[in-house]
Design a protein around this nucleic acid. Structure first.
Lengths: 236, 236
DNA sequence: TCAACTTTGTGAAGTCGGGAACTAACGCCT
DNA sequence: AGGCGTTAGTTCCCGACTTCACAAAGTTGA
């Protein structure tokens, strides 16, 4: 969790939501949307928390940081709560996302359904490889299909400026990542999602979140190995 | 972090490494390997921690859970430390991984370099779509290239049994995920990495780690929005 | 060999997040 | 209208992680 801002801040006056809570809000949001699609109108903290995989106490405490949007004795109105969580998350306004690196991972992100439904619009595709540059990729934006051409890396700054993108996604090989990162920052991007297995160096005020696919596997392997020593210890 | 085991465990007797530390070990490992490839033989906690994006105190405390592998006044021997971390992570023995869902994301995982180098071997590819089943996919395993055929979903149990895979990766659409998960568990898999945006229900003793691409973006968007209220507050 | 310097490993304090229990508010039923 | 059951919001406490600071240990130079 590489955050330069907001870590040591003393949670000033009401607003100021713990990182742990922020990380769970998207899950609550997603489950609420699926409930809404199923026609559910009201839900209790107990039921909703179970579907989100957290305890009801934790869920209620998380929501208490946002405000009081429930009704005692009843529960939460699904659409009302959905609205307030999405408002808090900033999903109300669409965020412009530029994806750098149109390999398999980049394409997976592009075709990821529910990407646009959660308030993100892919406004730029950038790659360096001549085979990929110029390719036209179809993506769904706000319901209708739009074709977007892959642009060469040299146009990165132009694209970010023209589209006013706020978020950059790095889906390149590891050795390109730092260079791409610096150019994103120079273009004015302050929020970066990095899939490359490197630790990016960024100036203050820029937030980087990192997803390393292999790291997650390694954590699983650690627990798997540890379990081997005490084969059947779970009889709770 | 949906772990059913090992959360409330009272850190018995010396061995027992905090989850937060385990999550950082793979990063240390990766940076150490890259240092080794660069010809570096010795490194101090200060220098290494900086490259990993953590404080040196945290780094040293993390390592102290593994043992005393440093030399005071000098630092750490890169290869010696690399060995002990990889041993602790279980990277010494290769783990068999089955990937279910050979879409863009599945292919991204297959072509992810450094996958095999970190002790994982992809031993099975499974999909449901007739266009994909039977396709032969080339992947590098322990240096040399191997072709693996995509098998139909009905053979999932057979494949897991025959290959003795320990880890399952779910890279399917959301609506298939729970079903695939249950079949993985029934086949004997106890470690699952889930990319589908659903909360999986698993019996006790099965560990699920979850990666949701959109969730990470939403967390970024939250901070981006929050920053909008106090435009230039970072003047440290 | 000894002293000065460097760097590790660890003890202790401080901070953050989770869990349980309590209180207060709301709807419903009589 | 009033009591009863249900459920949200909050408070307190405890455990875990982080940070700071120091002491122990090893190296290097004279």
């Amino acid at each position: 969790m590489s955050i330069s801002l907001g870590k040591g801040r003393p949670r000033e006056a009401g607003r100021g939501i713990p990182d742990a809570t922020v990380a769970r809000l998207p899950v609550y949001h997603r489950v609420l949307v699926s409930l809404s699609e199923a026609g559910v109108q009201t839900v209790s903290s107990e039921a909703l928390a179970a579907k989100c995989g957290v305890s009801s106490a934790k869920f209620r405490k998380d929501l208490s940081y946002l405000g009081s949007y429930g009704t005692r004795g009843v529960g939460y109105d699904v659409s009302y709560l959905t609205y307030h969580i999405s408002r808090e998350l900033g999903s109300a306004q669409p965020w412009g996302v530029v994806i750098v690196g149109i390999g398999n991972l980049g394409r997976a992100l592009i075709s990821y359904r529910g990407f646009t439904s959660r308030g993100f619009a892919i406004v730029g595709l950038v790659d360096n490889h001549p085979d990929v540059v110029g390719e036209s990729i179809t993506l769904s934006e706000l319901g209708n299909l739009v074709a977007l051409k892959v642009r060469p890396l040299v146009e990165l700054e132009t694209i970010v400026g023209a589209t006013k993108a706020q978020i950059g996604v790095i889906a390149t090989p590891a050795d390109c990542a730092q260079g791409v990162c610096e150019r994103l920052v120079a273009s004015g991007i302050r929020s970066i999602l990095n899939f490359a297995p490197v630790v990016l160096e960024v100036p203050n005020g820029v937030e980087v979140r990192k997803v390393d696919l292999a790291v997650e596997l390694q954590i699983l392997a650690f627990h798997e190995q540890r379990r081997g020593y005490e084969p059947e210890a779970m009889n709770a």
